[in-house]
């Protein structure tokens, strides 16, 4: 796999504030990479440097092998940017917005017409394509905001908190369309402060706080990194102490203890231990009435790494 994006040692200060302090990461074709961090962590500053909007004090950005600079247009056609703020013209229609930005990418007339139609389809705005954007709901505007970033078929799509302030339905539509992108081989850089979004969408996640990437990897890598375990709550009637003893004998089980109306089991990987665990419990003669698995999430990882909650 070749890296579509390679960001190396990015540093950016605003006066005394070091907003981004040595951020590096790579994204491969078809991969969705998440930058997860609270407000003010340096996500927007990082991607502004990646998109060539902001000159880094130090460090380099290469997209498909081309270095991105603020004062050069080289490599920019490979990047699609979906800014955090909705960046569209309210007094133009959806089609006019798409066509205007498409022309800035020198898309020839016929290709552009076809692509505009396609994108309108993807973002579900075909019916409203000739309405002024100012008449759109917030969710529709968000979708158009994303559509413009996709229009010129970039190899790298950067989405900066694209679901902020969106109703649940539109949010789901947005997440689904992002999920589809990796299938098309697009490298996606997705920033968010929503842990669930990072978990759902991203193949790899970097946890960023105060301008520094604290940890990076798949969800499971991050979770194991901090030693967090899956929690299995088995609801049983019978001898709880005996059930707990049997469970803790399993090698994959870290700890098992009786709790109200059941037993709590901590294990490294719930799904692999569950069949064995349940058959052992059944063998004690206890009657299992329910099983609930809670995997440690990135929220817990973030808390562990930074000592603070993701959302204040």
């Amino acid at each position: 796999m070749t890296a579509v994006l390679a960001a190396q040692g990015l540093i950016k200060s605003f006066g005394d504030l070091i907003a981004v302090n040595g951020v590096s990461f790579e994204i491969a074709e078809g991969e969705t990479f998440g930058l997860l961090g609270p407000n003010g962590a340096g996500k927007t500053t990082s991607i502004s440097m990646v998109a060539g909007l902001l000159e880094p004090d130090n460090g380099t950005v290469h997209v498909a092998g081309t270095q991105i600079r603020t004062n050069s247009t080289n490599g920019r056609s490979d990047i699609g940017l979906v800014p955090q703020e909705i960046a569209i013209y309210p007094d133009l229609t959806a089609t006019e917005n798409l066509r205007f930005f498409g022309r800035l990418y020198d898309m020839p007339g016929e290709t552009l017409d076809k692509r505009v139609e396609e994108v309108l389809e993807v973002i579900g705005l075909s019916e409203r394509q000739d309405d002024l954007v100012s008449e759109f709901s917030g969710g529709m505007q968000r979708r158009l905001n994303i559509g413009i970033g996709l229009l010129h078929r970039p190899r790298l799509l950067i989405l900066d908190e694209p679901t902020v302030g969106v109703d649940p339905q539109s949010r789901n539509a947005i997440l689904e369309s992002v999920e589809d992108l990796s299938g098309e081989g697009i490298a996606v850089l997705y920033t968010t402060h929503y842990m669930e979004e990072a978990e759902r969408l991203c193949d790899r996640v970097a946890i960023i706080d105060e301008g520094v990437i604290k940890a990076e990897g798949t969800r499971r890598e991050l979770v194991s990194l901090v030693g967090e375990k899956d929690r299995i709550r088995v609801t049983v009637t019978g001898d709880l102490v005996e059930v707990a003893r049997v469970a803790s004998e399993l090698p994959a089980v870290h700890e098992a203890s009786p709790a109200d109306s059941g037993v709590d089991v901590l294990a490294n990987d719930a799904s692999s231990v569950l069949p064995e665990l349940l058959s052992r419990v059944a063998a004690t003669g206890a009657n299992v009435t329910g099983v609930a698995v809670s995997e440690p999430n990135l929220e817990a990882v973030f808390l562990h790494l930074t000592g603070k909650a993701l959302r204040d």
Partner: peptide, 15 residues
Amino acid sequence: QGGTLARLLAAPISH
């Protein structure tokens, strides 16, 4: 203010 400047600057056009 409208945020569209970021889009213009990200496009392959000169400042």
